[in-house]
Amino acid sequence: MSSSLDQVTAYLPEGLLPKWLLFLSVVSIGNSIQAYVSLAGTREVYSGSGSSPSPVTPLSARTFGTWTALSSIIRFYAAYNIHDPIVYQLALWTYGLAFAHFFSEWLVFGTAKWGRGIAGPAFVSTISLSWMLAQWGSYVK
C-alpha cells in the first residue's frame, strides 16, 4: 500500500524541482491561512525598523495572505506542469516578485529588519529563483 505522499507526488514530473515547488505551495497555503487568522506571523516578517513598530494591519495581513495564496496556486500548477514554458515563467515571476518585494521592504522601505521573519522568505525566493533559472533547459524544451 502506498503512502498519501506517494499518491500526491505520483503524477509529478521527475526531478527535485517539481517536488520543491509542490512543497512550497503547500507551505504557502498554510502561511496564507495564518495571515487571515492572526497578525503574529505577518508582523514577524514586517517587524518594522529599529525604532518604528510593525506597520502590519488586519487589511495588509489579509492582502499578504491573498497574494501568497495566488503565488501558491501558480507554483502548484508549475510543479505538475513544469515542462510548459508559460507555467514555468509564471512560477519564475512569483519568485522574482517575492525576491524584489522582501528585499525592498528590508533594504529600501525599512518595514522589515533582518531576522527570522524575513530570512525565510528571502532565502526561499532567492534559492527558488536561482534554481528555476538554472534548470530552465532541463525542464522546458
Rank of each mutant, 00 (worst) to 15 (best):
M1Q: 12
S71A: 13
F99S: 00
I29P: 00
Q135P: 05
P55Y: 03
V37G: 08
Q7G: 10
L24H: 09
G120I: 14
S2K: 12
R75M: 07
R75S: 10
L39Y: 11
W131R: 06
S3P: 04
A61E: 03
V27G: 03
A35F: 02
A91L: 07
A40R: 13
F23P: 04
G117R: 00
P85I: 01
A69D: 00
H83L: 07
S3N: 03
S138G: 15
N31E: 06
A79F: 01
L16E: 06
G41W: 06
A40H: 08
G65W: 03
I127G: 10
V124D: 01
L5W: 11
G15H: 02
P13C: 07
G96C: 02
R43D: 11
I127S: 03
Q135W: 13
Y36D: 09
Y11H: 12
A119Q: 10
V45Q: 00
V8H: 02
P85E: 06
Q34K: 10
E44C: 06
R43L: 01
G15Y: 05
A40Y: 08
P18F: 01
W93V: 14
E105D: 03
Y36H: 14
R43Q: 15
T42V: 14
L17P: 06
G50T: 13
I74V: 15
S52T: 15
G115R: 00
W93M: 14
E44L: 05
G137W: 11
S138C: 11
Q89I: 11
A134V: 08
Y36G: 12
S52Y: 06
Y36P: 09
G48L: 14
A10S: 08
A78Y: 01
P85S: 07
S138W: 05
F103W: 14
A122F: 06
P55M: 03
L92V: 04
E44N: 15
Y88T: 13
S138N: 15
L16V: 07
A134K: 12
L12Y: 07
T63E: 04
P121Q: 07
T94H: 12
G120D: 04
F102A: 05
Y46I: 05
S128L: 13
G137C: 10
E105H: 02
I86G: 00
T63P: 00
P53G: 14
Y77P: 02
G96H: 09
F103L: 15
Q34H: 11
L16G: 09
L5E: 09
S125K: 12
V45W: 01
M132T: 08
F123V: 13
W67Y: 02
V124N: 00
G15S: 05
V26K: 09
P18H: 00
V108K: 13
P13D: 06
R116M: 07
S51W: 12
L92T: 12
G117A: 02
S130A: 15
Y139P: 11
P58C: 07
S128W: 02
S72F: 04
L92C: 05
G48Q: 04
A91V: 02
G117V: 01
F23G: 06
Y77Q: 11
P121R: 02
G117D: 01
L90Y: 08
M1Y: 09
S51A: 11
L59G: 01
H83D: 04
S71L: 07
T66P: 00
S28V: 05
N81L: 11
E14R: 11
K141I: 10
V37W: 12
G41M: 12
A69C: 03
A40F: 10
S138F: 12
Q135N: 14
W67S: 02
R75V: 01
M132E: 15
G110E: 08
G48M: 14
V26I: 14
